[in-house]
């Protein structure tokens, strides 16, 4: 059965209202301040470190985002923690908030489809997140220009740009998830707590749990353990499981983009191609090596949105 009219009718109206709402809300201001505060501190220390130690480094600018030596408080780490927080903060009351304010049935009795409401809200959330991330990104680069006194190379710009896009996709995953919960739970508090709970679980517990579960599914082979290297099957399982968490995917993609020397993902590939281990990868190769992670993030975002969409279509407008 074909529906009459376009499902996109009204998307623009919803989009602009929601965007305006987000950008002027106190909630957004608080979240934004949080990120700027954390980001400023971390980037400042990174810059100091770079100024003090670096002699010759072709990727100086990238160190601003991800300082060498796996410092715990890098800008990237801060982002990977705060992006889910902002995304959940923007999305957790998208639909159930309308329901609780009793505006949902009034809005849906206007000549638009439910699609427009959900899609408009999602796009507005994503646009808000993008605006935040782009602003932050520009601020860090601006700070770097002032503090380090050298412009980034073209390749560095490319890498930072891809990093930005990956960050937006990562934010989209959490936004989709938060909106899904806002459809599933009638209480905004339940939706927020569930989303935050899942985020904490995936960020803190899952990486360790994935190791254990991977070991259980495919136990280490004694022959590999004897010579002190991990069993490939076990590692494959552990990695695969760990990648269920969007945080893991994001981390891997970011490492590939910001640490050109890091080749943990593509050791084998690099050797097959006869490349020298430890030498930095060119940009296109870095993108190629992070491609599965990037695609997975985008696919995860779409998948979660679709699940929320289906649930919303089937939902009764009233209790």
């Amino acid at each position: 059965m074909r529906r009459e009219g376009s499902p996109r009718r009204g998307v623009g109206v919803v989009f602009f209202r929601e965007l305006f709402d987000h950008l002027t809300s106190v909630r957004m201001l608080v979240l934004e301040l949080l990120v700027v505060l954390f980001g400023a501190v971390v980037v400042y220390f990174a810059a100091e470190q770079i100024r003090n130690t670096t002699a010759e480094d072709p990727f100086l600018f990238l160190r601003l985002f991800a300082p060498p030596g796996q410092s715990l408080l890098s800008f990237v780490t801060v982002l990977s923690i705060l992006i889910p927080l902002i995304a959940i903060g923007l999305g957790f009351d998208a639909i159930n908030g309308e329901y609780n304010r009793r505006t949902l049935s009034r809005i849906l009795s206007q000549p638009i489809y439910r699609d427009a409401l959900l899609f408009g809200k999602f796009l507005a959330g994503l646009a808000t997140l993008s605006i935040c991330l782009i602003t932050l990104w520009l601020m860090v680069i601006g700070f770097g220009l002032l503090r380090l006194g050298i412009p980034p190379s073209t390749e560095e710009m490319g890498r930072m740009l891809v990093f930005l896009l990956v960050s937006i996709a990562y934010a989209g995953v959490w936004l989709s998830l938060a909106m899904l919960f806002s459809v599933l739970f009638r209480s905004t508090a339940t939706a927020a707590l569930s989303a935050l709970g899942l985020w904490l679980f995936l960020a803190l517990l899952w990486p360790a749990l994935a190791q254990v579960v991977g070991e259980a599914i495919s136990p280490s082979d004694i022959r590999f353990t004897m010579i002190g290297i991990p069993t490939p099957d076990t590692v494959a399982w552990q990695q695969g499981l760990a990648r269920i968490s969007p945080g893991t995917l994001y981390g891997e993609a970011v490492v590939a983009m910001l640490n050109p020397e890091a080749q943990s993902l593509t050791n084998l590939l690099a050797q097959f191609q006869g490349r020298v281990l430890g030498a930095p990868l060119p940009l296109d190769q870095s993108i190629l090596s992070a491609w599965p992670q990037i695609v997975s993030l985008i696919a995860g975002m779409i998948l979660l949105f679709v699940v929320g969409y289906i649930a919303f279509q089937r939902q009764e407008v009233r209790a």
């Binding site: 059965m1 529906r3 009459e4 009219g5 009718r9 304010r101 009793r102 505006t103 049935s105 009034r106 009795s109 206007q110 000549p111 638009i112 489809y113």
Partner: peptide
Amino acid sequence: VREPLQVKRMVGYLPDTVGFYD
């Protein structure tokens, strides 16, 4: 069912305890 937009264009609805954006 088939033409919800046509119907909703010509019908005004005031729900039970109507809500607005406060």
